[in-house]
Amino acid sequence: MRRLLTFNPWLYLLFFLLLVGAVLAQQYRLFERAWFVVEEWQHSGQWREHSLWLGDYRVVIDAKPIEGIRDVSALTYDPDRRSLFSVTNKPAKVIELSLQGELKRTIDLEGFGDPEAIEYISPGIYVIADEREQRLVKVRIDDDSRVLNAADFQQLSLGIGLNGNKGFEGLAYDARKQRLLVAKERDPVRIFEVLGFPHVDESKPLALQVNTDPKRDARLFVRDLSSLDFDAATGHMLALSDESRLVIELNAEGKPVSTLSLLRGQHGLQRSVPQAEGVATDDDGNLYLISEPNLFYVFRKQND
């Protein structure tokens, strides 16, 4: 006698919840992140000696408001001035900060549509990324700078995979190889390597080259990219993700070796970082972070 199939709503609900959980886990790259935790634990003794090893960092300035500033985006360290630079886009400005997060000055930007990143290149020379137009602008900043007009400076428009406001979101510079690393925020997440810009030696012709590393980008278990930083001492790169609340350290081969979580309770944080937009390190290995609307953080390595 044929058995009658009975409808079990709990079984269907369980199946639905498992399906939703699997989709969310894939969307948030939880499987890759969990596997990296295992690898990090297995190789910690080997990797720790040759990296920044972000797991050892603890917050020493936690969510300090930057007075008089909102809508901060990106961060870079200037070793000559011993200060930090960031940009805002409403209104468009460059801001200079002390290493304690105090506002030192603002510089007006003209002719920039949506400035989202700034990177120190050499004494007085910076590159600003205009997100929507995927434009890079080489600018000069000195003690007397009050206004920077994009029309006055060398520019490069790449227009790679134009996608509204999901364009260039972060910059980093490797001075030894003279390569500019450019982060595309998402859809998909990408890190481009630009050689030949900014044009340093004007006596030589411009030779531009743009490289990608799909294998490295596939290892980035994050939903988006907000900022980049390059550590000359180790040759490693830091990649900041706002949506994943994470900083990832990548070695010279582009493999993740350590992470810094931006969630409450991690690394001494009293609250989760609300919207991380910029990361930078100084010559002493201190890590600086800014978050919208105007919050400033400093992390320092603990050697206990």
Rank of each mutant, 00 (worst) to 15 (best):
V38Y: 09
V23G: 12
E39W: 02
G21N: 12
V60L: 00
E40L: 08
H43Y: 11
I69R: 03
V20R: 10
L54P: 00
G21C: 07
H43N: 14
E49C: 00
I61E: 02
L54E: 05
E32A: 14
E49V: 08
Q27L: 14
D71Y: 10
I69L: 08
S51V: 03
D62K: 02
E39L: 12
A34N: 09
V37Q: 14
G55W: 04
R29C: 10
L52E: 02
Y57Q: 04
V20G: 07
V59K: 06
A25L: 11
Q42R: 13
Y57W: 03
A63K: 01
L54V: 05
E49G: 04
F36M: 09
I61V: 10
S51A: 06
E32I: 03
E67V: 12
W47T: 12
R58H: 13
A22I: 08
E49Q: 13
A63L: 01
Y28K: 14
I69P: 01
D56F: 04
Q42I: 14
V72Q: 01
E67A: 15
E40K: 12
L24H: 12
D62Y: 06
S51I: 02
G45N: 11
E32S: 13
H50T: 12
Q27C: 00
G45D: 09
Q27A: 13
W41F: 07
P65I: 00
V38H: 09
G68P: 02
